[in-house]
């Protein structure tokens, strides 16, 4: 049997946690302010900033997309819908042959199906997809979770710059294209 019974010690732990929550200033500043002392965040009033890398929502940089369908093919639950057509663009030099260009008609991501795995962002060879840490896009109707091209492009504004790497890294820091 310990000197102080565990029952009393346990009461001490909860009691001291309560005092720490009510008086976050400690003994020096005994002003009760539980809002500061609590570890929770009162969500709609204050928000925690998610980390830069957080996988919140996928943003589309429309100009870079060539409708190559790689992302749609690699998606594990096939929630990306892409349609595109080819157009003849004016030749680069006068007298040259007209170039072919891929025009994106439709790029939808169904967030009701999306698993937020990030494979599409990774496989995109043209850097058209980016992760944004924005997370407040819930909808009362499940059909509204299908974000179309314009909605996905709007998310582009919320994409943060890539972070620097930790010392000793040999990764190259990527750049987010300006919107």
């Amino acid at each position: 049997m310990a000197l102080i019974p565990g029952l009393i010690k346990g009461l001490g732990v909860t009691g001291s946690t309560m005092m720490r929550t009510i008086f976050p200033g400690g003994v020096k500043k005994p002003i009760p302010s539980p809002v500061k002392g609590a570890e929770t965040v009162q969500y709609p009033h204050e928000k925690e900033a998610p980390p830069t890398r957080a996988r919140g929502v996928i943003a589309l940089h429309e100009e870079n997309c060539t409708a190559c369908m790689l992302c749609a093919r690699e998606c594990p639950d096939w929630c990306i819908y892409i349609e595109g057509h080819k157009e003849k663009a004016p030749p680069r030099r006068a007298g040259g042959k007209p170039r072919q260009r891929n025009i994106l008609d439709r790029f939808d991501i169904d967030y009701a199906l999306c698993m937020f795995c990030g494979i599409c962002v990774e496989v995109c060879p043209f850097e058209a997809l980016f992760w944004s840490p924005e997370y407040e896009f819930s909808e009362p109707r499940i059909a509204d979770l299908l974000h179309d091209m314009s909605r996905l492009s709007e998310w582009m504004e919320t994409v943060p710059d890539f972070e620097d790497y930790e010392a000793g890294s040999q990764q190259k820091k990527l750049k987010v294209p300006p919107t």
């Binding site: 909860t14 946690t17 309560m18 720490r20 929550t21 009510i22 002392g37 609590a38 570890e39 929770t40």
Partner: peptide
């Protein structure tokens, strides 16, 4: 309240 404070949270607000 008291129990919420013991658990480092605020309780109903």
């Amino acid at each position: 309240k008291a129990v919420s404070f013991m658990q480092s949270r605020l309780g109903p607000m």
